[in-house]
């Protein structure tokens, strides 16, 4: 027991830090979770499309999404939907969007 006291403290700190981070995330005012998909732009889809199921990024509320793009206002980086998409490619604008510069 004595030999494991320092590693035990490490485990307690790790679990405590993880729990604190989870509680901190949960304490903010929660809005609806959306299914976020990455948007692809090409010659066939100048307005952007969600090409396939592998473009699924995360299911989360907008404020908790860690965008893979730089912040912007021009094009859609991610589009959020209230339910998972079932047909592809999908050109719908979605319930909400996270923008990128270009």
């Amino acid at each position: 027991m004595k030999k494991s006291i320092i590693p035990m403290l490490a485990v307690i700190i790790a679990v405590g830090a993880s729990a604190f981070t989870t509680v901190k995330n949960l304490n903010h005012k929660k809005t609806a979770d959306l299914y976020w998909y990455e948007v692809t732009y090409d010659a066939s889809h100048p307005a952007g499309t969600i090409a396939s199921s592998s473009d699924f990024y995360t299911q989360s509320e907008k404020s908790q999404v860690n965008s893979p793009c730089d912040a912007g206002t021009v094009k859609d980086c991610l589009r959020g939907f209230t339910s998972a998409l079932t047909s592809y490619p999908n050109n719908a604008a979605g319930t909400d969007q996270i923008k990128k510069p270009n």
């Binding site: 320092i6 590693p7 403290l9 490490a10 485990v11 700190i13 790790a14 679990v15 830090a17 993880s18 981070t21 989870t22 995360t58 299911q59 989360s60 908790q64 860690n66």
Partner: peptide
């Protein structure tokens, strides 16, 4: 040394599991 590594691996593993979708 072992404790520092435990801290690293445990925190990253738990963070992955608690927000698995992300």
């Amino acid at each position: 040394i072992a404790s520092a590594l435990i801290l690293l691996f445990l925190i990253t593993a738990i963070s992955k599991l608690t927000d698995f979708g992300l």
